[in-house]
């Protein structure tokens, strides 16, 4: 790779994108834990990403922060760096590196479907594309999220005695699911696990419609029925969830289109809702960026590499140093 190495270091500047270990200078694509680490000296990111990092890791999780807006360019030596919306979660960005007219785009995590929460994904033409490949197999085709959320509403009507427990990753997915529930007309208080509280408050302050939320630990009596509780997926299997009698477990994730996965995780209502691209979005994006060279990271790269080669596009898998296999956020 020319300007980037396998650790996503912009070599002429010694600036790392989403570094896994503390570095001097880092650009952070979004605030999910596998991309944003604490302990860097200088962090360049969108305002939302920085805010959320501070909420999660503390005010001093980096020595200094520099905010950059979408579309705004930063010129360092011969290199222009611009951040564009990635449509993944609030503040998520793609990073375009323009070095003497050669454009390299690092997508970070992204989706092209508009979730009405994050700034919609913007397609950027480039020479080299570094794309995520979380759902890089043709079997992954995410259904319409508004339709998926109706499964919960239907089940609530059918099982008025039950508490519906929805496992959602605390940042991004939880707020999207709550927002989808509100859009589908659900007006009751939604109960949340403590781990979601601060992020939900931040989303609310950013004018995302989440409606009335209440933290479970504020309640003394758990004998409630016909309610929705949102918690991180790990809490669903934990003792924490034992307090709910008569519960129906649900989870929101792109992986749950596979029935065996649903069964393994003992999910009764799988919500196939993802903040990543499905196969069609990935292949469409690759085509539309007109990239001559495509590097595919964390996920199912093999099928996409094969697909690119069939289309005459140069493609390689790129295993980012220190990055584990993707679990969907």
């Amino acid at each position: 790779m020319n300007i980037l190495d396998s650790r996503l270091n912009i070599k002429p500047l010694n600036i790392f994108i989403d570094p896994q270990h503390p570095v001097e200078k880092a650009i952070i694509s979004h605030a999910h834990a596998d991309h944003a680490k604490s302990g860097h000296d200088k962090v360049l990111a969108t305002k939302e990403t920085i805010d959320i990092m501070k909420i999660r890791y503390g005010e001093n999780c980096a020595k200094s922060f520099q905010v950059i807006n979408y579309g705004e360019s930063l010129k360092i030596n011969d290199v222009d760096i611009t951040l564009y919306p990635a449509g993944h979660i609030l503040g998520s960005a793609q990073i375009l590196i323009n070095f003497k007219g050669q454009k390299t785009l690092v997508t970070g995590d992204y989706k092209t479907v508009d979730d009405k929460i994050s700034t919609p994904f913007e397609l950027i033409k480039c020479n080299t594309l570094v794309s995520e490949a979380t759902f890089g197999l043709p079997i992954f085709r995410h259904p319409n999220a508004n339709e998926e959320i109706k499964k919960i509403i239907t089940s609530l009507n059918k099982n008025p005695q039950s508490t519906h427990l929805i496992g959602c990753y605390a940042l991004g997915k939880a707020q999207r699911v709550i927002n989808l529930l509100r859009d589908s007309g659900y007006k009751e208080t939604i109960f949340i696990h403590g781990a979601l509280e601060k992020i939900c408050r931040y989303y609310k302050n950013s004018n995302i419609k989440l409606g009335n939320l209440e933290k479970i630990s504020n309640l003394k009596d758990f004998d409630f029925k016909n309610n929705i509780v949102i918690a991180p997926p790990s809490a669903l299997k934990d003792r924490w969830s034992r307090r709910f009698k008569n519960k129906i477990s649900s989870q929101a994730s792109g992986w749950l289109s596979i029935k065996q996965r649903v069964k393994q995780n003992q999910i009764e209502i799988p919500l196939v809702i993802s903040d990543h691209c499905d196969w069609n979005e990935l292949t469409k994006t690759i085509t539309n960026t007109r990239a001559e060279k495509v590097l595919l990271t964390h996920g199912n790269e093999e099928a996409l590499v094969y697909w690119c080669k069939q289309k005459g596009i140069d493609a390689f898998p790129l295993s980012i140093h220190g990055m584990k296999e993707k679990v969907e956020k």
Binding site: I139, R141, S257, K259, Q260, N300, A303
Partner: peptide
């Protein structure tokens, strides 16, 4: 190739076809 990669991943033929 794409079918076999998917089948490897899913592990169940009926399920692979249903999604593919």
């Amino acid at each position: 190739t794409l079918f076999e990669l998917s089948y490897d991943y899913v592990g169940d033929l009926a399920e692979t076809i249903s999604l593919f």
